[in-house]
Computed example of a mutant assay.
Amino acid sequence: MSLKKIDPRFSLLLLFVVAAGLLRILGEGKITPFSNITPIGAMALFGGAYFTGRWKAYLFPLLTLFVSDIIIQQVFYPEFSQGGLLYQGWIWTYAGFTAMVLAGQLIIKKVNVPSLMMASVAAAVAHWLITDFGVWLGGCTDPTTGKLYTKDMAGLLKCYAMAVPYMKAMFFGNLAYGAIFFGVFELIQRRSTLRVVTNDQLQITNE
């Protein structure tokens, strides 16, 4: 294969996404002290902001999420797999993750602190609303009563209220890991011959 056919930008983006998946696995395995602060939201925002092909923005982060989910589920939480590869209600988690990628596409047109803040908030809220709607719909137990959440508005609101701490953790993960991913990537591309404009433009210059 000719070196001219190798896209260094795509390779670097893919490396960041894979690194986020590895960090997530290490966190879930308690190998790092940051198990409650997940990088998956930052990975979604990063992919949505930087992958120029729309399908790539969803495919590679979702594939990384899927592979890391399988490893985490089978290695650390096999009791929740119920004989399958993934956990119950996974479809809602993936829908929430897809919404976070969309937030990266729509909000981070230019990489700066305000856009990353807004995208981090939007991604955390979208993930919270979608995934915990699935928790409520799937008939999960209210930890304060030991009974199932009631199938009415009160039950849904209670389910959302109980998940607020997780939504906050998602926001802090989006912000912390997002600052690292976006910051390091921007630093690398500014110090190299690769000039990147999020989503739409790619220009290679010789300096």
Rank of each mutant, 00 (worst) to 15 (best):
Lys109Ala: 10
Met162Gly: 12
Pro78Asn: 02
Asp152Arg: 03
Asp200Phe: 12
Thr64Asp: 05
Gln88Thr: 05
Phe171Ser: 04
Ser68Gln: 05
Ala163Thr: 00
Tyr166Asp: 09
Thr193His: 15
Met100Asp: 07
Phe51Ala: 08
Phe76Arg: 04
Ile91Met: 02
Thr93Trp: 00
Ala20Thr: 06
Asp152Ile: 00
Val113Leu: 13
Lys4Leu: 15
Gln88Leu: 13
Phe97Thr: 03
Asp69Arg: 02
Lys147Leu: 12
Phe80Pro: 00
Gly21Ile: 09
Lys5Trp: 14
Arg190Phe: 10
Met170Phe: 09
Tyr166Lys: 13
Val101Gly: 01
Lys158Asn: 09
Leu26Gln: 12
Gly134Thr: 02
Lys158Arg: 06
Ala42Gly: 10
Glu186Cys: 13
Leu59Val: 10
Glu79Asp: 14
Tyr77His: 01
Ile71Ala: 13
Trp55Cys: 15
Asn112Thr: 00
Gly96Trp: 02
Ala179Val: 12
Gln189Asp: 13
Leu23Cys: 15
Leu59Ile: 04
Lys30Glu: 14
Pro8Lys: 09
Pro61Glu: 04
Ala57Glu: 07
Asp200Thr: 13
Leu12Gln: 06
Tyr160Met: 02
Ile204Pro: 01
Gln201Ile: 14
Leu59His: 07
Lys168Ser: 14
Ile72Gly: 06
Gly155Val: 06
Cys140Val: 06
Tyr58Val: 00
Thr141Ile: 13
Ala154Cys: 06
Ile71Asp: 03
Tyr94Gly: 04
Pro33His: 04
Pro143Trp: 00
Phe97Ala: 04
Tyr58Phe: 14
Ile72Thr: 04
Arg54Ser: 07
Met43Asn: 10
Val197Asp: 10
Phe97Gly: 00
Leu102Tyr: 01
Gly139Cys: 12
Met167Gln: 03
Ile71Gly: 15
Ala154Glu: 02
Ala99Thr: 03
Tyr94Phe: 05
His127Ser: 14
Ser11Asn: 09
Leu3Ser: 14
Gly134Asp: 00
Phe60Asn: 02
Ala169Phe: 04
Met162Gln: 12
Pro78Gly: 09
Ile91Glu: 11
Gly96Cys: 03
Thr131Val: 01
Pro39His: 12
Gly53Gln: 15
Ala20Val: 08
Leu116Tyr: 08
Ala161Arg: 01
Ala57Leu: 10
Asp132Thr: 05
Val111Gly: 11
Leu45Asn: 08
Ala124Asn: 02
Cys159Leu: 05
Leu194Val: 08
Thr32Asn: 03
Arg54Pro: 14
Ala49Val: 09
Trp92Ala: 05
Asp69Ile: 08
Leu23Phe: 00
Glu28Leu: 11
His127Asn: 10
Pro61Trp: 07
Thr193Asn: 15
Gly21Ser: 05
Ser2Arg: 13
Thr141Trp: 02
Ile107Arg: 05
Lys147Thr: 02
Gly173Arg: 08
Tyr177Trp: 03
Trp136Asp: 04
Val196Phe: 00
Gly48Ile: 03
Ala99Pro: 02
Thr144Asp: 13
Asp69Gln: 07
Gly53His: 15
Asn206Pro: 11
Met162Val: 09
Met167Lys: 02
Phe10Ala: 15
Val75Ser: 07
Asp7Phe: 10
Val196Thr: 05
Gln73Arg: 11
Leu194Ala: 13
Gly173Tyr: 06
Ile72Met: 05
Phe181Gly: 04
Thr205Leu: 10
Leu85Val: 10
Arg190Met: 13
Asn112Phe: 03
Phe34Cys: 12
Val17Leu: 11
